[in-house]
Design a protein around this nucleic acid. Sequence first.
DNA 1: TCGGCATGCGACCGATCAGTCATATGACCG
DNA 2: CGGTCATATGACTGATCGGTCGCATGCCGA
Lengths: 226, 226
Amino acid sequence: MPKSTFFRLPEERRARLVHEAIAEFADRTYAEASLSQIARRANIPKGSVYQYFEDKLDLYRWLLTEEAPRLKRAFVGMPSPEGDFWTRFDDFVERGMAFLVEHPRLARLSAAAADPTANPEVRGLHKAICEAGLQELRAVLEVGAERGALHAPDLDVATRLVATIIGPGLTDVVLQELGAELHEVLASDSLRKRLGPKRRRALAHQAVDFIRKGLGSGKPERRKET
Amino acid sequence: MPKSTFFRLPEERRARLVHEAIAEFADRTYAEASLSQIARRANIPKGSVYQYFEDKLDLYRWLLTEEAPRLKRAFVGMPSPEGDFWTRFDDFVERGMAFLVEHPRLARLSAAAADPTANPEVRGLHKAICEAGLQELRAVLEVGAERGALHAPDLDVATRLVATIIGPGLTDVVLQELGAELHEVLASDSLRKRLGPKRRRALAHQAVDFIRKGLGSGKPERRKET
DNA sequence: TCGGCATGCGACCGATCAGTCATATGACCG
DNA sequence: CGGTCATATGACTGATCGGTCGCATGCCGA
């Protein structure tokens, strides 16, 4: 938790610090990210940063558990319970992709919870965030299961598999589509514009279709041609 | 590429170094991993390590592109082209899981290619490895598509989605099943034994079934009960 | 026995980091 | 004015890192 001083900060200064911190933690690992660097870039002396936060982890935790979710909620909003399950799910995924493209730094920060790290405290934090995300997704899928739109032998397993698809999986697909690395997308505003809403929609739909129907055809397999 | 001295090393010394290096790079990020630590643990002076490798990256590259694939091939072997596509694919996935459980450090090292990092050289290395893995998987899926066992609107997209399922996705499921963190599994020999071949098989099959049939039932959705 | 060469080795270097601390500043109060 | 208190600030600490360097060691051929 930030110190009380942080909340009494002039808006401009606080915004600058948070902005640079997000930038730093978005394109470096927690271990690689440097508090000195953040302070330098935000033009705030390092000593001052320690007036606002207990330590590096405190700042990171604040971004991960408060700033990012707040900004994400503001962008994504809440899912409406109308329409049939798969249509709603499609919307859900597409809005996630929109967030990824419109706010790559925030998306990356949220996804950082999947990053490996040797620091046990950071691991704990990441785990908690992952778990929360899975819970949320599980709740969504549960509705589908109750309505009979979705069938899984083990909903926990299914939730995890679906999570990797609409998370790292779709991110990977988007990057391929853009022909760029995550790093380049984070750095370039123009690059992300290359993925218009139309194509975005198509990719989301393709992923959802995969989740829904799989790749098997149900038809009998053609024998190996002679 | 290691220096020639490395290849002239007494077997025991080389093995010790490689072993400790794998251990270090398996449970820390490249950035977090410490060459000093590796040298210390292998009981080899740091100066000597620099007689064998150009630098930290050189050692890492060697492990990632030579040691890990060699040991993995030795364990997994090559897929046999007999049987129908989905049966073979099931085997393929199950052997991957066996590797994960029997040699978690090597599996983790191979998976490290998906780790984010700020170092451009490491990113390049990781990208190359990912790309190679995707090519391999794509070739497998192509066979399925040709035989009509598999249908995807875009095979590249499908390959990437499948890759995240049988990679990070299944790893995540296995960890949940073991009720442990990746770190604990890497450290404890006894822990991994808890996932017997039977349950392993069941999980692999469940994942493949998901890939094959998806979660949708095809049945019409039951309307929200009043 | 000697000389040269590959290798072993660990002290050392410069850089960077997270985090601390003593001092400076300046707003507000009496 | 004087005093107090929150805050600003950057020099400093101690640790670790990747990488280098120069000396020590020991093998091999003459």
